[in-house]
Write a protein that binds this DNA or RNA. Sequence first.
DNA 1: TATGCGTAGT
Length: 700
Amino acid sequence: MAAAKVTGLAVAAESAVFRGNQELTRLARSGQLAAARRLFDEMPRRNTVSYNAMLSALARHGRLADARRLFDDMPRRNTVSWNAMISACSDHGRVADARKLFDAMPARDNFSWTLMVSCYTRAGELTLAREAFDLIPGEKCTACYNAMISGYAKNGRFDDAVTLLQDMPAPDIVSWNSVLVGLTRDGKMVRAVQFFDEMTQRDTVSWNLMLEGYVRTGDLDAASGLFKSIPSPNVISWVTLLNGYCRAGRIGEARELFDRMPERNVASWNVMLGGYVRLSHMEEAYKLFKEMPDKNSISWTTMISALVRAGKLQEAQDMLNKMPFDSFAAKTALMHGYLQSKMVDEARHIFDGLEVRDAVCWNTMISGYVHCGMLDEAMMLFQQMPNKDMVSWNTMIAGYAHDGQMRKAVSIFRKMNQRNAVSWNSVISGFIQNGLCVEALQHFVLMRRDAKMADWSTYACCLSACANLAALQVGRQFHTLLVRSGYIGDSFSGNALISAYAKCGRILEARQVFDEMVSQDIVSWNALIDGYASNGHGSDAISVFREMEANNVRPDEVTFVGILSACSRAGLIDEGLDFFNSMTKDYSLQPVAEHYACMVDLLGRSGRLREAFELIQGMQIQPNAGVWGAMLGACQVHKNKELAQVAAKKLIELEPHKTSNYVLLSNISTEAGRWDEAEKMRVLIKERGVRKPPGLAGST
DNA sequence: TATGCGTAGT
């Protein structure tokens, strides 16, 4: 009797633990980490399952260190505990830690091996993954095969994925889909269609993958055609197509589809919301957000980042305070907003307050410092960052390059273990920005030799290097590469080609590229106008401008810089004055310093120095060195020593470190017979020293 | 543990 009572109590206690564990898992899965932790701490009895559940919950919420502490403190560990800890390390990219655990565990099951394989493939370590896969003792399970296949496919090794699929004794639907995903993720739809046709089994996931591939490549007609033939579309099929329409900006069709959906989940609402947000349709976005039956942290983050993008930082902050989730994505979005507005302290406050930070948080803060010109702070944070990813390194490279510190940019670039196309492109375009075009092209050669990852943007960058060097033949080679890579109609590379040919003096070829482009944007028109201008074809530049007007393309500030300098070089004074007036009157564009510099040049060249000087004095904005430089140039040509001295003094005020200004003023003073002034200048040069020119010499 | 949807960073 007593024994039965004890047994009964034990059973009751066991089932209480069982129920507790179920609740724990439920809380963790629904994102309520705090509640889960409270429940765990208050549980009167816990078993290994409770610990394992808490461990996974912590890991899922990014608290790897807390998970590890719990793992170390567990009274008993089973294989599931070890596997959970390995999985946590794998999720956070801690390959070495995962491996250490794997080696230390007392017994391994299929689960452990599969985890280790996928941990390696996620880190791009396919050789190590395959070694682990081959070492699996006994019969390999389907999941092991699938992990390896998926690893190959997601790393672009389609052939290896297929080979393994064929070697498999009994591939299941996941095996087939894992291969397919490799093709659709890369947008290789021709091969994807071929493979899809060969598949002996298909499920809705297979169809959805194809759908996603078409959406990814922007082929919405193919996507909607395919959608209609899906035997049993599920909510993900609908969401995928909806996302396609939203991303293409076809918001009307998207909404129609959304309204027709037989079943909606949070993702459907989030996609629709994102569609409105992307097009800045804030009213509709607000309305939809209010109507949403369920909102998760992604819904809130989308809305907050919309407010951030609209520059409504206070509203975004208010919304963040109201948000019932603790989402570091939302906080990162607001941080980004503050940084774009150069409110560094507010951003840093959020950053410091984050309990969990992922790579994106760190990178946002680092790139924010870079954006605000605070390179030292960026570097400090970069050095503190625990798991730097490719973006972190690339951000620092671009940051130093943009700041003219190429030596530091290159040194970071060289320290990288792995580089992607962005790394190479950053260092190449950095050289170009700093006028080191030969070095840029040398790095292109290294890139092709080491990594063969040049893309259209590499070619476009190198083209502008050729343009700056007026290296026509090399430029033509890049033109060929662009044609071969299929990006020729694209406006970015097209524009680079126009500038390149124009700068090499081949204005007819520039015009030909312009005419062959699928669509010309404002940059294309500006490049062409600038091309004619710099080649001394002032009246042709004006005709292009008229052509642009006739095509209803609205000129911008850059257009006017081109057209004014065209007038100036061609001596078309009256036309220049007309354009300058038309700029504000007809296009409501406020002239900036560059426009004034062109005008000063224009007037100055024809000897109208007084008018030029009056124009400067009447400027609404502060004249910069370019303006005074133009004035000085004109004064020297027309030998006006009095105005030349004024201009040179202003230049020295604006650029106290530039030696050439002092030399100029000193010469002018000497010529004017003002020996005292000339001597003063020579002393000043010595006192203030010489600033190193930008580029490689600019770093310390 | 292996396949498919939505947010934040170069």
